[in-house]
Design a protein around this nucleic acid. Structure first.
Lengths: 201, 201
DNA sequence: TGTACATCAGTGAACGCGCGTTCACTGATGTAC
DNA sequence: TGTACATCAGTGAACGCGCGTTCACTGATGTAC
């Protein structure tokens, strides 16, 4: 039963969106193609009409998730007014290490969701992940250094990278003990928030 | 062919040691029981004489790896002379985010090696991991706050947690792009080292 | 515009493989006397 | 200490399951005339 070209494109997009959610929630290996296709309201056989392999989909899902995150941070970096930009950036970082963010596993940041798995995946996935992280980190550093003079920009970028590592590390560690030691998990996130406050002034 | 009790205990210990290496290198799901047992110079059938399930071994390996890390940090925290302790602690942190550390995947820190996978493993593994991280983090905070007055110790602990998150986050991110974008990977580690230098005085 | 045919997105059974786990067996070790 | 037997760590074949992937088939869509 052939369907319309537009419908087929929508179906493919829905598979990528579904994968973006499920892969973040359960990891690449935790989602079978049959599970995924059923979650996207299709049967598993049609998968290979759209993707050459599961690897290809992993790469596509990775790029898709990063694209959204990059867009959000670039929007902050593009804010013209320095005060408003700083406020928006602080908000973003606070939300990043909020408990709500830790618990929303399906919407998690691609760094945290994929960093552990990605180095064991195929070169295609690794390449797409690296490209995404590179752009994300650049956008993050730009949001932090926008408006600074060229003289301090280099060290400001370094600081931004470390701040990003601290946020991602805190979220990763907090997530890893969320079930087994909730109070430790909370303490890690609270420390991250406190550090943001201390760095803000 | 029954063997001596001592030999059997040694065999079990060798399986745990081998698992500690292979799981860090390839992840829990990347190592089959047959692979593992052959790496430990045995056949796969004997596995269940020592462990109830693969989960049990994962938990044991997790605890084993953490125990070593905890021991190292506790030794630093126990150094009596404040100057020498600070120097030892700084050394430890610098080694943690050295490129050599990123590339030694088989010897990697348990936080970085397991954090991504652990929340998808069984409760047994999650429990052992959480217990290990809790002790490790406590030791790390003690190494940072030893000798400080009670008044500042709470905020010093928070700072130590964030510093640990920054180190673990930097190593995780650097590892995740090590193959596909080596210069980005290097930049992340260099930023982490620079931040350690800035925090030291 | 209408018709005939090729195309191809989606279906669901099937294949082959690797994995965790089980099991009957072996034979040296540990133990009871 | 010596002997007879039970124990149990290690072996390797086998089982059952889930997975990624393939394939013959369907029938509405797209296209050539």
């Amino acid at each position: 039963m052939r369907i319309t070209k537009k419908q087929a494109d929508e179906n493919k997009a829905r598979v990528v969106e579904t994968a973006a959610v499920l892969f973040r929630e359960k990891g690449f290996d935790g989602v079978s193609i049959a599970d995924l296709m059923h979650a996207a309201d299709m049967t598993h056989g049609g998968f290979y009409n759209h993707f050459g392999s599961k690897d290809d989909l992993e790469a596509a899902a990775c790029a898709h998730v990063f694209a959204k995150s990059i867009e959000a941070v670039e929007a902050i970096a593009a804010v013209a007014d320095p005060v408003e930009r700083a406020r928006a950036f602080d908000d973003y970082k606070c939300r990043y290490v909020a408990k709500k963010s830790r618990d929303a596993t399906a919407a998690r940041c691609p760094m945290v969701a994929f960093a552990g798995d990605v180095s064991r995946q195929s070169p295609t996935v690794r390449g797409e992940y690296a490209a995404g992280l590179h752009k994300y980190l650049d956008a993050f550093a730009r949001a932090a250094t926008a408006g600074k003079t060229a003289g301090v920009r280099k060290s400001a970028r370094r600081q931004a990278i470390t701040q990003l590592a601290a946020l991602a590390g805190a979220l990763t560690l907090a997530r890893s003990v969320a079930d087994a030691d909730p109070s430790l998990s909370d303490e890690i996130l609270e420390a991250a928030v406190a550090a943001l406050g201390a760095a803000a002034h």
